[in-house]
Design a binder for these strands. Structure first.
Lengths: 260, 260
DNA sequence: AGACTATTTCGCATTATACGAGAAGAATGT
DNA sequence: ACATTCTTCTCGTATAATGCGAAATAGTCT
């Protein structure tokens, strides 16, 4: 493997399960010598991606926090989507949480939320938390638009219980049928798949053209949503997706600005 | 320069001022060939640190968002400080915003906020935004505890107007005196230096022993704070700092857990 | 304080691999 | 289908990454 990749995989050691690393442990895990690992860690901490608060123990560093803010402020997808998500919660009477999700490593990750002023802010799709592809409206609507060669592999490697819990069929044919249904509907509604008592509504975002890069959606409390309201909000969600796509296309044409 | 460092400086190109980079521009800026820059970018995007939404244009990637969540959940400083900040806002009648700030590249960066239920959530020390060392209570209290050899350099390179606006003296002797005052007080109060109409109160956090790594503090609306209240909150802030230090020390002793 | 240990950096010979240039291959738009 | 990007690949050469052991530094303990 290349040096650069090994350096980056050193950063990849820092996970939720193992967020703190000593140089010694990391060296062992990376299969590198102590000197090399020291060099990796000092390079990474020179740019702030990691740091050692306690001597000898490294954790993720402040540069991550700084970069995350930059994403919140300037990421093109997020930037163009924010006003659209805001309008979505508004038109749902401030009762839900609007979500912008992205495909990320065969998973789905929420990258932005707009919380209605009258909504419970805790939803399973927490910002930055990778979620599976099969559970929840935001995920399933992405799944439904993945190329079928990829789907086959995903389904094959999926543990049985996860799949059946998702309610999208337990064999390939059923599965194919359900996903086709989701595709033609253009919007997808699920109940209680992530949070009990909540309804998820989501539509796919394509970019460019016809590859799914994510989804827009909203999570509503099932108790305070009439069928009429759900139908109305579904329409709004379905309308939001192409709006985002159009805004992205516009951003692209503006991106030809001069450099600093 | 080493290859690994050049790879990382490629990541460093992505700034607030220039958040989007084409491979061509980046190559030019890095002084590297196109092939090399493609290699860098593909390594970085393989781990999700950057990505290209629009073909040919790269921006910071989703891994940042994931890592940022990891910091919010598991960073030791943040983890031990959160309950202490929460108590701080509680005891300030939910009227302020408690801040946890860190030293970061000769600057100060807020890494966590606890917003009182009755407080205006917008404060200048936004999470992830690097701030200067001379303006604001959270910054000045850190500045005051930096080694004086470093201070001399900082002051020398500081533009005149910035320094005088900070109200901590305009020549070295005045400066030294003011900082000494801040050090002996143990807590520092400023008015309207960041946000007009707001009072900032902050205390330094030392770790290990006697090196400043950051500050705890709170921002209150000047209009709704009596002198009595400010005095009381100042005591609370001053008490919070050693609490955090102690909690950090405790964390350290627990850190000797086995690896996965 | 002063000796001890743990942590980190350094120097250097060896070896691997990163580099650039250009060609080849995809992808995109006309 | 063609022209124009955008991206990956190939390959010889030069460079810098590697590991080892030693040295320096920091931190700890009695």
């Amino acid at each position: 493997m290349a040096t650069a990749d090994r350096l980056l995989s050193a950063l990849g050691l820092f996970t939720l399960q193992q967020p703190e690393w000593t140089v010694e442990r990391a060296a062992e895990r990376l299969g590198a010598s102590l000197s090399t690992t020291y060099r990796y860690f000092s390079s990474l901490s020179a740019v702030g991606l990691i740091e050692s608060l306690t001597a000898g123990v490294y954790v993720l560093g402040p540069a991550i926090v700084e970069y995350d803010r930059q994403i919140r402020l300037l990421d093109p997808l997020l930037k163009v989507s924010r006003p659209i998500l805001q309008r979505l919660v508004e038109m749902a009477d401030q009762k839900g949480v609007a979500l912008l999700c992205r495909r990320y490593r065969q998973q789905v990750m929420c990258v932005h939320q707009e919380v209605g002023s009258g909504a419970d802010p805790t939803v399973g799709y927490e910002r930055g938390r990778p979620m599976g592809l099969v559970r929840g409206a935001a995920s399933q609507v992405i799944l439904a638009h993945l190329p079928s060669r990829l789907l086959k592999v995903l389904i094959r490697d999926m543990p049985e219980p996860l799949l059946s819990a998702a309610g999208i069929g337990c064999n390939w044919d059923e599965f194919r049928g359900k996903l086709k249904g989701i595709r033609t509907a253009g919007v997808h509604v699920t109940r209680g798949q992530i949070d009990p008592g909540k309804v998820g509504i989501a539509s796919p975002i394509f970019y460019p053209k016809d590859v799914v890069i994510g989804s827009v959606g909203i999570a509503l409390s099932e108790a305070e949503s009439t069928n009429k309201m759900l139908a109305r909000v579904s329409m709004l969600v379905m309308a939001a997706a192409p709006e985002i796509e159009a805004a992205l296309a516009e951003h692209e044409s503006l991106a030809l600005t001069p450099a600093a």
